[in-house]
């Protein structure tokens, strides 16, 4: 007789939804955003993750977005608009060396966060772009400094990013209203 440990699925704190965005210029932005699937156990997460293409295999202009069920993967969503994101901008070379590993660590990090405010994490996004891919963790309240800094430190540690290499956190408000090509960081770690 097998032990329950072997057949009981391990629950996640939240139900999550994985979205896929494919840049079809003939369609609107929201039409290009497709819900792939939802899950609320560790086993179902991996079943989905192992089933889909890795980010490095996606075409330019494509995104994966993983958000808590009920939160749309866009700044405008009520649970995103007051928040921001820890943003990793990757070099072109990193697409083949780091992108898939970073994305997998980013996805599994949300099950490991020891913050006092895990509720802060809304989701994670990977953008595949010709100039360099981007991975980000989105949180819901850019004023919640302590939780944001804890998430950023754990993120850097998980991705084994050197201490002197800084990653920045930008509020969606700043990102959406930026004039130049870069957005100022609210926090960095």
């Amino acid at each position: 007789v097998t032990s329950p440990e072997q057949y009981i699925k391990h629950p996640l704190q939240h139900r999550w939804a994985l979205w896929y965005f494919k840049n079809d210029k003939s369609k609107s932005w929201t039409e290009n955003l497709r819900l792939i699937s939802k899950f609320d156990t560790v086993e179902d997460f991996w079943a989905l993750y192992n089933h889909i293409q890795q980010p490095s295999k996606l075409g330019f202009g494509c995104d994966y977005c993983l958000f808590k069920d009920g939160i749309k993967p866009m700044w405008e969503d009520d649970r995103n608009k007051l928040g921001g994101r820890w943003l990793m901008t990757l070099s072109k070379q990193q697409r083949h060396n780091d992108l898939d590993r970073y994305w997998m660590e980013t996805l599994s990090l949300r099950c490991q966060l020891h913050t006092d405010c895990p509720e802060d994490v809304c989701g994670a996004v990977v953008n595949v772009r010709p100039k360099g891919d981007k991975i980000s963790i989105w949180t819901g309240n850019c004023q919640n400094r302590d939780a944001i800094m804890t998430i950023g430190q754990q993120y850097k540690e998980r991705l084994s990013i050197p201490i002197k290499t800084l990653i920045g956190y930008q509020s969606h408000d700043d990102t959406s209203s930026k004039s130049g090509s870069t957005t100022k960081n609210m926090y960095s770690v």
């Binding site: 086993e43 991996w46 599994s108 490991q112």
Partner: peptide, 18 residues
């Protein structure tokens, strides 16, 4: 309330289990 957290090794082990 209770918070469900997993450690990294457990998560990665689950990835490869059938």
């Amino acid at each position: 309330g209770t918070r469900i957290i997993y450690d990294r090794k457990f998560l990665l082990d689950c990835r490869s289990s059938p």
